[in-house]
Design a protein around this nucleic acid. Structure first.
Length: 490
DNA sequence: ATAGGGTTAG
């Protein structure tokens, strides 16, 4: 290009930088700009900063270096740099730059709001929000999103109601907030209201809400949305249909999930992965493996998610040999290097199957450091099979990684209790007190006729509590008859 | 340069 005497302009660099999918490519473009000895206008270094910031800490440092040597900076230079820091979680540094800025615009404020909201620091976010000279719908929806993720639906709702310029995105945020928490009534009422003001769901809306339904098990709302978009003849994209598959599968409606899957004219890898995983988590191991063969037969290349689904399916169906084979095949046949998640699946598979030695061996031979999840999985398997010695070894690692996680303390204390080692139970209790941790009770929820019922252990708050416990007793007796020995923990 | 969104091991 240059041999012809033509020099790149802003747009050339813009396209070039957009195409850079690695740090070294950005560096090459940067070197080229330097060599030409001119940056054009400020657009080029700004675009360079932005591209650098996409590549983690190293990229940010390179971006910062450029930012520091720039002779002239405009508000976009500052915003790009702050945005990069915020995306990487370096909020303190972002805040410093924000304070130093000679002039801030709405984007600067919104970027900082987003950073605090993503970090769950809603007090700080609210402080900024109140100090902003003016706010747009992005400022409002960032606040609604942050409060909703922090679990404060009252604040989220107050801000949503106060927002003077509601668009589809802020409606999506508040409705999926309610849906995620299983608050069906509000979610449904707002969904109807949204249609009343003339807003129609788009892909982003449907995907958000369906993902929220999948998480909280709100089958009712998911079905309602399905019916409503059928009424208005919404043409569902593959992504939306995938969200339906996942929602139905997570809610236990495998037939409905498979119905959506079968009816799709165009499936992508995510469709297959969601369906395989859905079958897997509900114990349909054989069906999941068959679907995998069909997928390969139809020419799809499996990815790391496919193997997580497959290994999960093997675990839930007790298919130890099959799981081992897939684990080794994923690298040898499909060229996918197992990640810590895959090792986690394998350790769960082996551990639940009682092959604790093999599970422990795999843990030690992992090419990466085990994380809390992997160790917790193995500890759970130790409890299941009453292996106190191995549990102690695992716990030593675990306490180093997550010294104050109350979940691990209670798991370990249960293991000691089961072995009758009351001295160590008392020790653990003491440690728990000193770190101040009490394990929050896990809760299950179920939706019956548009109402969500939540249960925790020893819960007696439900109006039909007595009936429920009577039913549990009966179930436990039935289970005993077929050989199951229930365990009660302290 | 800023807001919602699909599959991810316990």
């Amino acid at each position: 290009m240059q041999c012809c005497g033509v020099y790149p302009d802003n747009f050339t660099y813009s396209f070039l930088l957009k195409a850079c999918n690695s740090l070294s490519l950005v560096q090459m473009v940067h070197a080229h700009v330097e060599k030409l000895g001119f940056y054009g206008d400020i657009f080029v270094p700004n675009a360079l900063i932005d591209s650098y910031c996409k590549f983690g800490c190293v990229g940010i440092r390179a971006g910062m270096k450029l930012f520091m040597v720039m002779e002239e900076r405009d508000v976009v230079s500052w915003n790009s740099m702050i945005g990069g820091l915020v995306k990487n979680g370096e909020l303190d540094d972002a805040c410093k730059l924000f304070d130093e800025m000679p002039k801030r615009d709405m984007v600067s404020w919104n970027t900082m709001l987003d950073g605090y909201a993503k970090a769950g620091e809603m007090n700080k976010a609210f402080g900024l929000f109140e100090r902003m000279p003016e706010r747009n719908v992005i400022s409002w929806s960032t606040m609604v999103w942050g409060y909703s993720k922090a679990g404060d639906m009252a604040m989220a709702r107050m801000l949503f109601d106060k927002c003077p310029m509601k668009n589809l995105i802020i409606w999506t945020t508040i409705i999926s907030g309610y849906a995620e928490k299983g608050i069906v009534k509000e979610a449904t009422v707002l969904y109807d209201k949204m249609e009343e003001v003339g807003l129609k769901p788009d892909d982003g809306f449907l995907i958000s809400i369906l993902a929220a339904c999948a998480e909280s098990g709100m089958l009712g709302l998911g079905k309602r949305i399905h019916a409503s978009i059928r009424r208005c003849r919404f043409r569902c994209s593959t992504k939306v249909l995938n969200a339906f598959i996942d929602m139905y599968a997570k809610c236990g409606c495998l037939d409905a999930a498979f119905g959506v899957f079968s009816g799709m004219s165009r499936r992508d890898l995510v469709s297959w992965n969601s369906m395989i995983h859905g079958l897997g988590i509900h114990g349909h191991g054989e069906k999941a493996l068959k679907l995998f063969s069909r997928m390969v037969h139809e020419g799809f290349e499996p990815d790391k998610y496919t193997f997580i689904g497959l290994l999960c399916a093997c675990t839930h169906a007790g298919l130890i040999n099959e799981g081992r084979n897939y684990f080794y095949a994923m690298e040898k046949v499909y060229g996918i290097v197992p990640q810590v998640e895959h090792y986690g699946c394998m350790i769960d598979l082996l551990g639940r199957g009682g092959l604790l030695e093999e599970a422990f061996g795999l843990l030690r031979n992992m090419p990466m450091e085990p994380n809390v999840v992997v160790l917790g999985t193995l500890l759970g398997a130790c409890r299941m099979h009453n292996d106190v010695d191995l549990a102690k070894a695992v716990c030593e690692h675990l306490f180093k990684l997550a010294p104050s996680d109350p979940g691990n303390f209670s798991l370990m204390s249960n293991i000691y209790a089961q072995a009758g080692d009351w001295v160590n139970v008392a020790n653990i209790r003491k440690q728990m007190k000193s770190t101040g941790g009490q394990k929050p009770s896990g809760a299950s929820s179920i939706e019956v006729e548009e109402e969500v019922h939540e249960f925790t252990v020893f819960d007696q708050s439900h109006p039909k509590s007595n009936d429920i416990y009577e039913m549990i007793d009966r179930l436990v007796q039935d289970l005993r008859q077929v050989g199951y020995v229930p365990k009660a923990y302290i």
